[in-house]
Computed example of a mutant assay.
Amino acid sequence: MRPSETALPQLLHAEITALGGYVPDRILTNDQLAGMVETNDEWIVQRTGIRERRLCAPDQYTSDLCCAAVDNMLARYPVSVHDVDLILVATHTPDFPCPSVACQVQANFGIESAGAIDLNATCAGFVYALHMANGMIASGLHRKVLVLGADALSRVTDYTDRTTCILFGDGAGAALVEARGDQPAFLAARLESDGTGGSHVYRTGLRSELNGTPLRNTKLLVQNGPMVYKWAVQTVPQGMRSLLDKAGIPMEAVDWFVPHSANLRMIESICEKSGFPISKTLYSMVMYGNTSAATVPLALSDAAAAGRLSAGQTLLLYGFGGGLTQAGLLLRWTV
């Protein structure tokens, strides 16, 4: 090789090879919420489809949820995490600003020689992290990536605000992404953001205004539900069609749609506007609530455990949420 020449890394194909999920033991039902704020089970189910949600124990945080999800994955699949070379954790409720949740996962499992990064794309975070894992593997820079989506939203929920406290729960999902196979399993991706809508979903930190809008400095999650709902049902169906057009795959060829499980009524509206049947849609909010970055992996984990996913199926994953952020991913299922 001449001095001016550079050896390019061999392009590799990434596949999801294992899944895991975890939700805490403590259950908060709609009837229990009715004793905390002015609401009732019928009102909540009619508007959100949520019947109960899981909450962390007093000594349980996002890193604990992540480690439990990995334990669940290891119990279900003949895989190891000891040779993982990168850990990506999607969360906006880390135990600490520093150290990262990813570093805590690395320490818990004694994974040597692995990079560890937290990323925050809120409810779109897990799909973003899968996209990044695919890029890392396709470039040849990494061969085995542990991807986690987890949030402990009960830690930042205002339980005096009935418009938000009825929605949120805690949970985590894990996926192992490896360099395998001679055919791509990650078929197409689409990312989008609209920072002008950032003040519709926020949690305050060092700054008390955003885009000129004063923020409620409560340190708790604040959401303008009607605006987020309108944004999602208008933009997600367009994003789905754009992603499928990019891949050259018709809507009818998709076996499962796996959107962020924010609200069942929102998902029903997205399906209606996109023309995709709700009967072929996987969601996790009914018994777990909106778990933010964990909703998509929990839906996948539960569907896999129930035998609903099969090798060769085409899945359309779509996360959307605070930022405002969106991420769509088209997968050929191989697990």
Rank of each mutant, 00 (worst) to 15 (best):
E112T: 14
D161R: 09
G328S: 04
S274D: 04
G322S: 15
I87H: 01
C67K: 07
T235K: 10
M1T: 14
L300W: 08
V201L: 15
D151A: 02
E272P: 06
R180W: 02
A311N: 11
A107T: 10
N30H: 08
T334K: 13
M36T: 06
G49Y: 08
A133Y: 05
S199E: 14
H82P: 06
H82D: 15
Q32V: 07
G115C: 04
D118F: 11
Q46R: 15
L324V: 11
R47A: 09
L220H: 04
A124D: 08
K230C: 07
L119S: 01
C123F: 09
T163F: 01
M132C: 12
V70N: 01
P237Y: 04
T163S: 10
Q234A: 15
A174L: 02
L146C: 05
D161M: 06
D161C: 09
C271Y: 00
R53C: 06
V296C: 10
P24S: 00
L167I: 02
A299H: 11
M136G: 13
V101I: 03
D85E: 05
Y159P: 09
P3D: 03
E252F: 00
T17V: 11
A57V: 11
G289D: 01
I270R: 00
T204C: 13
G322E: 07
G321V: 12
W231H: 15
E178I: 06
L88Y: 05
S242Y: 10
L55G: 10
P259I: 01
D85K: 03
F109D: 03
V222K: 14
I278L: 15
A185G: 13
Q313R: 00
T160P: 07
A305Y: 11
I278D: 04
A247V: 03
V258Y: 02
A188H: 02
G20S: 02
D71M: 11
R241I: 04
P94F: 06
V147S: 08
S310K: 13
N134M: 05
H142L: 01
D118T: 13
L191E: 05
A102H: 07
E15W: 13
P297I: 04
D302I: 09
L331M: 14
A306V: 08
I267D: 05
